[in-house]
Design a protein around this nucleic acid. Structure first.
Lengths: 135, 135
DNA sequence: CAGAATCCATAACGATACTG
DNA sequence: CAGTATCGTTATGGATTCTG
């Protein structure tokens, strides 16, 4: 295991964070959670357990494959739980684990920032393009 | 422009968020900010303006190309500012714009979650693998 | 030092078809 | 309905080289 930020600060008097260390597992975790599809999946799961097709219908533009893949990843990492309801045809319900619920505020904040600042970002982008054309 | 969540809620009595709409620009913004390299770059820039090579040295494992690309993206979207200091050889300093600073808490939270929960995630992953082997 | 540009491997993704 | 598997395309990212 790699050393954490607090350990490093104490032991080495350095200000480096462990996510800055390439081989630290926290880097993989960061890579896992810094993902737009997860932020969108959370928009649904934070409210109530949701079925596969319900998720796909709600999240416009996500492919069957990406949704399966992302859900499987989250399940493997202990962030979502998968419950099979033995009906015919079978239904599968996804929900947040207790670890997953600790991510709710973060994921909500990502979505919110995107929605709140989309105009600003769009304007900055257009302004940049205009500046480029002049140059 | 697409309609926002609040507009939709008011107009359509729907609970859909605008990030859930594929063509809404907020989706692009979400895609922009849900990125591990950005979270890591913020770890440096939130403290003080930083030069290109300083960033690359601090962020282990980021390639020259990815760093340029990510910084250029952030600059275009008005999140970071680029200041050329006319020395020989030239120095370039990156810093957060006022829009960029509004992202500081979010990016810090992503890094922190990753560091704080890496053991839990790792254990969940191993437990999952063991369960799979049995099956 | 900063960065643009090229080439190349491979990983991501979407579409499709097939199973319990 | 949920999920897996395969295929083909596009996008991503790294290594390298070249410039002000």
């Amino acid at each position: 295991m790699c050393y954490t930020w607090s350990m490093e600060k104490t032991l080495l008097q350095s200000s480096a964070h462990s996510v800055l260390i390439a081989r630290c597992y926290s880097r993989d975790v960061l890579d896992l959670i810094a993902d737009k599809w997860i932020a969108l999946i959370f928009a649904l799961l934070e409210k109530h357990p949701t079925r596969f097709n319900e998720l796909q219908r709600a999240i416009e533009g996500i492919s069957h494959k990406m949704l399966t893949q992302t859900l499987r990843n989250l399940e493997r990492r202990g962030i979502v739980e998968r419950k099979i309801i033995p009906t015919i045809p079978p239904a599968v319900e996804y929900s947040l684990s207790s670890l997953g619920t600790t991510l709710i505020p973060l994921m909500a904040a990502l979505r919110q920032w995107a929605e709140e600042h989309m105009e600003e970002v769009e304007q900055a982008f257009q302004a940049y393009e205009e500046r480029e054309e002049k140059a």
